[in-house]
């Protein structure tokens, strides 16, 4: 009997703890979180870099102004996180249906040494057709990453090769090129698609 009471208190305590943790998460990291001002990406109009898309066109941040935009970083030699992000984004775009056609979706490689225009072209072909792959010179990639307030680093692997650590968040901008929000890696789909809709809606508001 006494043990049962203690168990009951324990369960209630654990429940309260889980609730408190959830509330904390919601406000700090979750959908209720304020965007951290110091780490906000620049507006696309304030960025400066010049890259080549997977069809060989010269592109830069100015290419993206005029349409809501989704940008993320990765590399095609990444076996886990990058194909997962690309499949997630393909799924979100499928969920958005026709609305997805109003967006620019750009995958910028942080590994231009291996990710040539041809490599990006082949890789992008396996995912949603809206996804464009951008590559270019090391210094231009570095300028792009800085503009998004992201980071990347080349890390040697034991086999003599290397892998890349990189910012895995997905950045959303409205049609005017203003930063709207970002989708963190592992964020549930229920949060991702509404966030993308927000970027799409801000375009409509801006237009009227």
């Amino acid at each position: 009997m006494r043990r049962r009471t203690i168990l009951g208190y324990g369960a209630a305590g654990a429940g309260a703890l889980v609730f408190a943790l959830f509330v904390g998460w919601w406000q700090v990291d979750g959908p209720g979180a304020p965007e951290p001002m110091g780490q906000r990406p620049l507006a696309l109009s304030a960025m400066d870099f010049s890259l080549t898309d997977h069809e060989g066109n010269e592109v830069g941040p100015e290419t993206l102004i005029g349409r809501p935009t989704m940008v993320f970083f990765g590399f095609t030699y990444c076996p886990d996180v990058c194909p997962t992000t690309l499949s997630d984004i393909s799924g979100w775009l499928d969920d958005l249906g026709d609305e997805a056609n109003e967006m620019s979706v750009v995958f910028i490689t942080v590994d231009p040494e291996r990710d040539t225009v041809d490599a990006m072209s082949e890789y992008a072909g396996y995912f949603h057709p809206a996804i464009r792959g951008w590559t270019g010179k090391d210094e231009e990639i570095a300028k792009a990453v800085r503009g998004f307030r992201g980071s990347f680093e080349r890390v040697p692997t034991e086999g003599g090769g290397y892998t890349m650590n990189h910012t895995a968040s997905v950045f959303l901008f409205d049609a005017a090129g203003r930063f709207v929000t970002m989708i963190d890696y592992h964020e549930p789909r229920e949060f991702a698609v509404p966030k993308i809709r927000r970027a799409l809606e801000e375009e409509t508001e801006g237009a009227t």
């Binding site: 890390v155 895995a168 970002m182 592992h186």
Partner: peptide, 13 residues
Amino acid sequence: HESKTDADGVSSM
């Protein structure tokens, strides 16, 4: 291997 994403959103493996 293990992939991890840190508080700054940076993934590593």
